[in-house]
């Protein structure tokens, strides 16, 4: 029986429509907007690459770039490793394992905005319960989000608290899909636990790991809510991520062209890094 050529396209048309409306169109708007300037009263005019060349000499942009790169350099490996460790942990069979699986997944049910609000209260330096607990233990209270030394790490901590359980699900599915026979064969051949992990599990997890790393990178480069809700980019610009700067540029300083240009730069960075990650994690023999 022959299938009409358009049927597969019909099946994916709705999804494609969503993709065009909610992904490609905003990207197109951002790219066009990055080549324009918007007057205070809303008139647009074409300025070519001026917004990008202005960014090159803008110290605030470069400060945000440094913070964003540091943030991503730490959070992406941290979240993937944490998610993988959790997945390995809950892969084991044992009493209450479903409880632990659900427990690790629970933070993903809370939105990132709510996560920021909740942790903002918990880690509030003056009246927050975490510092109250530290005082009760006789330890010095910590500045957390209010200290230049701790603010970025605190944001990395809460984002990982929320993200690790979510990425764990994908990695757990990947681990469960590895045939038991492969592990059995390795065991019969005398491979020890860590050898089986490095020579069997890891190579067979390249595809799920690639997906998790790529998706995680994209999400973390676009991180906005915690700096907006908790730190406002401070103290001293230590949590001033690029997306927060893009927001400030558009809605506090009314420079929409600059804001769009920053968004396009972030998009290009994500694309480059994702391509690199996919190349590194490409399974042997895959094209």
């Amino acid at each position: 029986m022959s299938t009409k050529w358009w049927i597969p396209y019909a099946f994916i048309s709705l999804a494609m429509l969503g993709l065009v409306i909610f992904r490609f169109a905003p990207i197109g708007v951002a790219i066009i907007g990055s080549l324009q300037t918007v007057s205070l009263t809303g008139e647009r005019s074409f300025v070519g690459l001026n917004n990008f060349t202005d960014l090159l000499g803008d110290p605030i942009f470069w400060q945000s770039m440094r913070v964003t790169l540091l943030f991503n350099l730490v959070i992406n490996p941290l979240q993937v490793v944490s998610a993988f460790a959790l997945a390995m942990l809950v892969l084991q069979q044992g009493p209450f394992i479903s409880f632990f699986r659900a427990g690790f997944m629970a933070p993903m049910t809370v939105s990132i905005a709510m996560t920021a609000v909740i942790w903002g209260i918990l880690l509030e330096p003056t009246m927050g319960p975490v510092n109250g607990f530290l005082r009760w233990l006789g330890m010095a209270p910590q500045p957390f989000f209010r200290g230049s030394e701790q603010a970025l790490w605190s944001i990395i901590g809460i984002a990982t608290w929320k993200g690790a359980g979510y990425w764990m699900i994908f990695l757990l599915a990947g681990l469960m899909a590895i045939p038991k026979e492969v592990h059995e064969a390795a065991r019969v051949d005398g491979a020890k636990g860590w050898q089986r992990f490095f020579h069997v599990t890891l190579p067979m997890m390249k595809r799920p790991l690639a997906f998790v790393l790529v998706a995680d990178t994209a999400i973390n480069f676009l991180m906005f809510a915690p700096p907006y809700i908790i730190t406002q980019g401070g103290p001293n610009g230590t949590t001033h991520l690029l997306m927060y700067e893009a927001y400030q540029s558009a809605f506090a300083y009314f420079d929409y062209g600059r804001s769009m240009a920053i968004s396009v730069v972030v998009l290009v960075m994500i694309l480059l890094i994702v391509v690199l990650e996919l190349r590194i994690l490409r399974p042997k023999g895959a094209r």
């Binding site: 230049s148 980019g233 401070g234 103290p235 001293n236």
Partner: peptide, 10 residues
């Protein structure tokens, strides 16, 4: 934002 930073010790 500057006042926040000064309050935090900048």
């Amino acid at each position: 934002l500057a006042l926040r930073d000064i309050q935090m010790g900048a």
